[in-house]
Amino acid sequence: MILGNICSCSSDDEETDTEKPTITVNYAEGFPKSCTVLQKGNPYIIKVKAADNVALASYAIDIHHNFDHHTHDDQGAQCTLDPIKTPKSPMIFMENYPIKGEVKQYEITQSITIPEGIDAGDYHCQISVIDVTGWQSRTSIDIKIQ
C-alpha cells in the first residue's frame, strides 16, 4: 500500500530522451566514403549528415593512422590495406565543434587541408556526434593518404 502510493506520487510524465543521434556519409555528397584516397597538400570538405530526435550538440573529427591495422571501417567496405609499418610523422587531426541552435538536422561541412610532409598510408577518419542529452553516435571510415 505504502509502496503503491509512493509509486503513484513519483511517477510523472517527464519523459527522458533515450534515442541516439544518427550519422551517415551514405548520400551522394557524403565525404569521405570508404577507401577514398586523399592527396597530400590538397584541401577537402568533409560532409556528413547528422540527425537527432531532440537536438544535436557537438561533433568531432578525428583522423589518425592505421599503420598497425588496429581497427577497421564500420561502413561494411573492405579496403586494401598497405603492409603494417612504423609511423614516423603521421597526420593527427583532432578537432571538436559545437552545433549551435539546438537543431535536429545538421550537415557537417568541414574544410580540411592534408598537410605536406606527413606519412602516407592507411588512415581512419572518425566522425562523432553527440546530442544535447549526451547520447553519442560514431562512424569510422578507412581512407588512404598519398
Partner: peptide, 26 residues
C-alpha cells in the same frame, strides 16, 4: 559520472557531478 554533450580531443567528455536521487523497491 555524467555523459556531457561535449567533446575533449574528439572523445566524449564524462564529468563527475552530484545529483539528488530517489529510489524505491524491494
Amino acid at each position: 559520472l555524467n555523459p556531457t554533450p561535449a567533446y575533449y580531443e574528439t572523445l566524449q567528455r564524462y564529468q563527475y557531478t552530484q545529483s539528488e536521487v530517489f529510489r524505491y523497491g524491494g
